[in-house]
């Protein structure tokens, strides 16, 4: 007697796979939210990801794993929010909350002075020349009488030292 195999089963759609993947996405969303420089509700982030995933389901290759695609989407959603916040003017969350803004640059200058203190003179020159003055590596190499590769290495080392400092300041609010 031949067994009836029935019709071939279609691969589950993205919408069918999404609920299980959203559960797995939640911890990632919490880590992203904790790492962001502005308030993010992880559940709200997951909601946005679900919406965007459904909206762009046609762009998803069903042969690929869904998890990394959703994580990438979550990251994109968060970065889009970050970009919107940077474009929009500052708003008061509450009329009673004063804007945390200082018009005196003294605090920021002191903060930058502390940031640059651990850098050598050449590292400082490379960092300021490249990021503040907008000079190219070639221009800095000519100014400092160093090979371009050496200037780059000083620049990279300066960035690492800058990123490594843990003390916060008025400009670290992001």
């Amino acid at each position: 007697m031949d067994s009836d195999l029935g019709p071939p089963t279609a691969a589950p759609s993205l919408a069918q796979r999404l609920p299980a993947e959203l559960d797995a996405l939640a911890p990632y969303a919490r880590r992203l939210a904790a790492s962001a420089s502005f308030p993010v509700d992880p559940e709200d982030l997951v909601q946005d990801v679900a919406e965007r995933a459904l909206r762009y389901a046609h762009a998803f290759d069903p042969a690929q794993p869904l998890g990394p695609w959703l994580r990438r989407t979550a990251l994109r959603v968060l970065l889009d929010r970050r970009a919107r916040r940077r474009r929009e003017p500052q708003r008061l969350a509450d009329d009673d909350e004063p804007l945390a803004r200082t018009h005196d640059g003294t605090a920021e200058r002191e903060h930058v002075r502390r940031l640059l203190a651990p850098l050598s003179a050449i590292e400082r020159a490379a960092l300021i020349g490249f990021h503040a003055e907008g000079r190219t590596v070639a221009e800095l190499a000519a100014r400092l009488a160093l090979p371009a590769g050496t200037v780059k290495s000083h620049l990279h080392r300066a960035r690492r030292k800058l990123a490594a400092r843990r003390d916060g300041g008025p400009s670290d609010a992001g």
């Binding site: 920021e108 800058l162 992001g174």
Partner: peptide, 18 residues
């Protein structure tokens, strides 16, 4: 993500002060 944002914020601060 926090490390990247911190570095970018510090580079911005240095550029502003300079």
């Amino acid at each position: 993500l926090a490390e990247i944002e911190r570095l970018l914020a510090r580079l911005d601060a240095i550029a502003r002060v300079e």
